[in-house]
Structure formats: C-alpha cells, structure tokens
C-alpha cells in the first residue's frame, strides 16, 4: 500500500543501512558498536510491532491475577509487593503462567534467538 512509511519501516531502513552499508566500512570498536546498533534497531522494530499486544495481554492477565484493574506500572508494582511479602508465590494459581507469558513476549522482542526460548 502506498502512503507514508510506518515507524517500523523507518527503523528497518536505518538498520539495513547500518548493517549493509556502514558496518562493512568500519573496523575494530566502531564495527562492533555498529553491529550492536543494528541489533538495537531490530529490537525497536520488533517492539513497535509486538509491544502493544504484549502490554495489553500483560495488563489483562495482571487484572485477573490481582483481582483489580489499574495501569500497567501500578499493577506490576502491586504484584512485586505481593511477591516480596510472600503473599503470592510460585504455587499461586496463574502466577507462573503469567510471569512466563510476560517474559516470553519480552524476549521475543529483545532477543528472539536466545537459547532458552527452545525450552518454552
């Protein structure tokens, strides 16, 4: 579809330039940082694509788990406090599933090729 580039397309264009044009002309430390920069832009592109749905799913699960609704940061804080106080633990129904689903969504954005993803 013609129109204007999405944020994801802009980031992917910059990543492609860094990887295919800029990085091969660099050496040593600069070449290393160019590879890291390419990877950083790939994270941003995946976050633009997958982030909103992941946040929505996390918010819904948290509301169910905590039995009350709120914004995502407030609910994460509430869960953290309960886990620290021992009011919830790994045996709490739904907890392990929630935490695993949340972190899997994050790693899918931040490091989809990470070795442990095969164990999920």
């Amino acid at each position: 579809m013609l129109g204007e580039p999405t944020a994801k397309q802009l980031v992917e264009a910059a990543a492609s330039f860094l990887e295919k044009v800029a990085a091969p002309q660099l050496e040593g430390h600069a070449a290393f940082h160019a590879r890291v920069a390419t990877n950083v832009l790939a994270i941003v592109a995946r976050e633009l694509e997958l982030g909103p749905a992941a946040a929505k799913a996390e918010t819904e699960r948290l509301a169910k788990l905590l039995g009350s609704e709120g914004d995502l940061d407030a609910m994460r804080r509430a869960l953290s406090a309960k886990l620290t106080a021992g009011e919830m633990d790994i045996s709490t129904p739904g907890l392990a599933e929630h935490l695993l689903a949340t972190v899997v969504d994050r790693v899918r954005i931040e490091q989809p090729g990470y070795g442990s993803m095969k164990r999920v």
């Binding site: 290393f32 940082h33 990470y114």
Partner: peptide, 21 residues
Amino acid sequence: VERAAIGRRASETELDLMLML
C-alpha cells in the same frame, strides 16, 4: 550504544529464572 543495549538483556535472565523455578 553497547551500554544502552545491555539493559535489554535482563529479560533473558528473567526467562531463565522462570524456567529454573
């Protein structure tokens, strides 16, 4: 950029923690 990026590696340890626990 390397120091910025490493902040996004904490999630791999969270995944491993959940798998180990």
